[in-house]
């Protein structure tokens, strides 16, 4: 039922609506197995210094088949627009991809985005030809401003990064989706399969997660659950749910009952 339901971002067709991170896995094989189980196509990566004294940990991502997966570099750990722009440019140079998951963090404890700096970095990077996917708070006004600046998608958080709290403000996510002309991807906060399903049932175009899978006791099994939940949520959204009612409506006929 979902074969022709393809997500398109900046002209690129993406068949899987579950985007996954590459951090926190116990090992490369577990990560690859999780990607397979999730049916993921877009995978995020971070940009960091090469360890020139100890090269043993160097090849983590050489294991990822770039013909099979779309690598989406992030600017995680950046606290200023200037830093995020610098990391995005380095990522483009390292990976020859001009896509970036743009993060500008404003607070260490919540990892909430600094939206002012995010808007500034988006403006600069869009001008430089980047396909910018900004990680933002669940604020419809900021989402609209990002879109107006040329963001290729907007990625509101469901809850703080790594918190596993699920979608804290479903109404805002729904409003962001209703107002947006670009894809909306819930990024961060998903703790279990039902959270991912909720995001998709709200009409979002995709869900991005890392800790929700990698931090589970059995990451590969959770990856499969997340893949199914994203599909289930998407199908339910497309199918159109029934309206909520306060009182019961019988499913069986009220006529044809036996005489008392």
């Amino acid at each position: 039922m979902l074969e022709n339901d393809v997500l398109e971002i900046a002209g690129r067709k993406i068949r899987s609506r579950l985007f996954v991170g590459t951090g926190k896995y116990a090992g490369i094989q577990q990560m690859k197995d999780a990607f397979e189980a999730a049916g993921a196509q877009v995978v995020t990566v971070a940009v960091r210094r090469v360890n020139i004294s100890d090269r043993s940990r160097e090849s983590m991502l050489d294991a990822i088949d770039s013909s099979k997966y779309i690598l989406l570099p992030n600017t995680a750990g950046c606290y200023t627009a200037e830093d995020a722009i610098r990391y995005a440019r380095l990522a483009r140079e390292a990976g020859l991809s001009h896509w970036v998951k743009l993060e500008v963090i404003g607070d260490e404890r919540t990892l909430y985005p600094d939206n002012e700096a995010l808007l500034e970095a988006t403006r600069v990077l869009v001008k430089e030809g980047f396909v910018v996917l900004p990680y933002t708070s669940d604020d419809p006004v900021v989402a609209r401003k990002l879109e107006d600046l040329g963001a290729a998608a907007v990625m509101p958080l469901g809850a703080p990064i790594g918190s596993g709290l699920g979608i804290q403000n479903p109404n805002n996510i729904r409003i962001i989706k209703e107002m947006a002309r670009v894809p909306v991807i819930v990024d961060a906060g998903v703790g279990t399969a039902s959270d991912a399903a909720v995001a998709m049932e709200l009409g979002c175009d995709a869900v991005l997660m890392n800790t929700g899978i990698a931090g589970a006791q059995d990451p590969v099994r959770m990856a499969e659950a997340m893949g199914l939940a994203v599909k289930a949520g998407r199908l339910a959204y497309l199918a159109g749910r029934i309206p909520r009612k306060s009182y019961a409506a019988a499913s069986s006929p009220t006529e044809g009952m036996l005489a008392k």
Binding site: T22, V45, A46, R48, M60, L61, G162, T211
Partner: peptide, 24 residues
């Protein structure tokens, strides 16, 4: 990368060499 052959380094230069690592 296409300019690497032509760029000479000098004493005291500060380099950053980065790659991709796991991240979300």
């Amino acid at each position: 990368r296409r300019e690497w052959d032509g760029v000479l380094l000098h004493p005291g230069d500060r380099l950053e060499i980065v790659h991709f690592v796991g991240g979300g």
